[in-house]
Design a protein around this nucleic acid. Structure first.
Length: 432
RNA sequence: GGUGAGGUUCCCGAGUGGCCAAAGGGAUCAGACUGUAAAUCUGACGCGCGAGCUUCGGUGGUUCGAAUCCACCCCUCACCA
């Protein structure tokens, strides 16, 4: 069985939304090592799940012998991409963008092999954009763009056509900046392919044209589909907001849990998007799940693969350890060391406050981050969905935190495993 | 600069003097059912354990009483200049 061609494999995974002439792209990729890039704008201090697919895509290319450039948008991040955004965005300060840029840089470098000889490249468009003066920008770059074309792009159309919205010149200029990146990278590194989300098509083709005009080169584009969920809700969100790649923002345990809860209707597609398992392997998993009936294996495999990929084998082991301890239904098997380990493994944990007398459970749990408001805790209490060390708590006990969190009730004189609903767990411990 | 239309709770979107913490939908959370899935049904959904407290772009005003009326201001959009 011979290895699929890169483009064939990507197609089989459903990872291609659009490309420039596929025939030429395939030929180009077959001809040797191609340098390609994908940009990531610093819109937060960490990448999130939405960035994972393009990031993995760079890796897929690298695995096929190509050279990826991960571009951090230190400059474009100062402007804000208007593509398919309904509203003008708030500008972040230069310091903040700077700070976030270095966060992303650090994060990306953990994903892709960056070594000197022919390895991947990490770049920042601030390096070549910041020093361009206005007049040069307008004369040398701006002259290649017609406003007619810029406003006809689908990505800014709703901002221009729709009543009640507008677009500032600042954001409107974004597509020129991104085009300039492509031109620069082509010039500096002979970069001939840009990849990005399907919303980037307009920006990318702008770049292709600029490269042709300024460098006289014909370059390529490939976009990835937007990841959708079968129920129509947004992918990559949990109660706490986005799922981050930074383990300090989303713990490996929470990350693992996120994938474990993937709906059946999405799980095989996600395996193709987010793992390096071959399409054949994934199809086989799907077949076996169907034959077996009952609970599928796919979610577990997906969670394991992606957690290992984004975090590490150790983080995965820890996440599984917590999961097993919490969801096996029997906490009595845990010994004192296990509790300590749960905390080390990243199960959310807090100290029991010293002053409990005046503290309702609602406040206690909200402050610990188990729920976002007292109302939620109250609702859960009312429905018998709050457990402390497997003991149900009622609404009457809301004010009785003192008698619940006693040394006598604690496991090993120290620990309280609090459960809210079926999935939220939190470890409280007494401070001696 | 002129004219017109707008700014409502996470989002969309009703509400034009008391019955409004504000219809409806979406999202979200919890319960039942399940497989830590989906679908369905139920409940919650500004904050607070509670008494109660704080909201409808901003500031003042009218009124016993304002999201609703008045004045000024800020912001957005459209058309005109």
């Amino acid at each position: 069985m011979s290895k699929l061609g890169l483009i064939e494999d990507l197609k089989a995974r459903g990872l291609i939304a659009q490309t420039t002439s596929e025939e030429e792209l395939v030929k180009h990729l077959d001809a040797g090592c191609v340098t390609l890039y994908c940009g990531f704008d610093p819109t937060a201090d960490s990448l999130h799940l939405g960035h994972l697919v393009p990031l993995l895509m760079l890796k897929r290319f690298q695995d096929y012998g190509h050279r990826p450039i991960a571009l951090v948008g230190g400059a474009t991040g100062l402007i804000g991409d208007p593509s398919f955004k309904a509203q003008e965005r708030q500008l972040n300060s230069a310091e903040v963008v700077q700070e976030w840029s270095s966060c992303l840089k650090h994060q990306i470098s953990q994903f892709i092999e960056f070594n000197d000889d022919g390895g991947a490249i990490l770049a920042n468009n601030y390096d070549w954009t910041a020093s361009v003066d206005v007049l040069s920008f307008l004369r040398d770059i701006g002259k290649h763009f017609t406003v007619n074309k810029m406003i006809s792009k689908e990505s800014v159309k709703q901002r221009i056509d729709r009543d009640g919205e507008g677009i500032s010149f600042t954001e409107f200029t974004y597509q020129i900046l991104q085009s300039y990146d492509y031109q620069k990278l082509n010039e500096m590194y002979d970069c001939t392919l840009q990849i990005g989300g399907s919303d980037q098509w307009g920006n990318i083709t702008g770049g292709i044209e600029l490269v042709r005009r300024m460098n006289g080169k014909s370059v390529h584009a490939l976009t990835l589909p937007l990841i959708t969920k079968s129920d129509g809700t947004k992918f990559g969100k949990t109660e706490g907001g986005a799922v981050w790649l930074d383990p300090k923002k989303t713990s490996p345990y929470a990350f693992y849990q996120f994938w474990l809860q993937t709906p059946d209707a999405d799980v095989y597609r996600f395996l193709k998007f987010f793992t390096f398992l071959s399409v054949d392997q994934i199809d086989q998993i799907e077949r076996q799940d169907k034959e077996r009936e009952g609970r599928p294996e796919a979610q577990r495999i997906l969670a394991e693969e992606v957690t290992r990929l984004v975090h590490s084998e150790e983080a995965l082991v820890a996440a599984r350890r917590i999961t097993e301890a919490l969801f096996s239904g029997d906490h009595s098997s845990l010994d004192a060391n296990d509790y300590a380990q749960l905390q080390l493994d990243g199960l959310p944990a807090s100290a029991v406050p010293a002053e409990l007398a005046e503290l309702p459970l609602t406040t206690l749990l909200t402050e610990a981050g188990v729920a976002t408001s007292g109302k939620q805790v109250k609702d859960a209490l009312q429905r018998s969905a709050v457990f402390i060390n497997d003991q149900v708590c009622s609404l009457d006990q809301n004010m009785s935190a003192v008698s619940l969190f006693t040394k006598d009730n604690a496991r090993f004189g120290r620990y309280f495993l609090v459960k809210l609903g079926k999935k939220k767990h939190h470890l409280f411990y007494l401070v001696p």
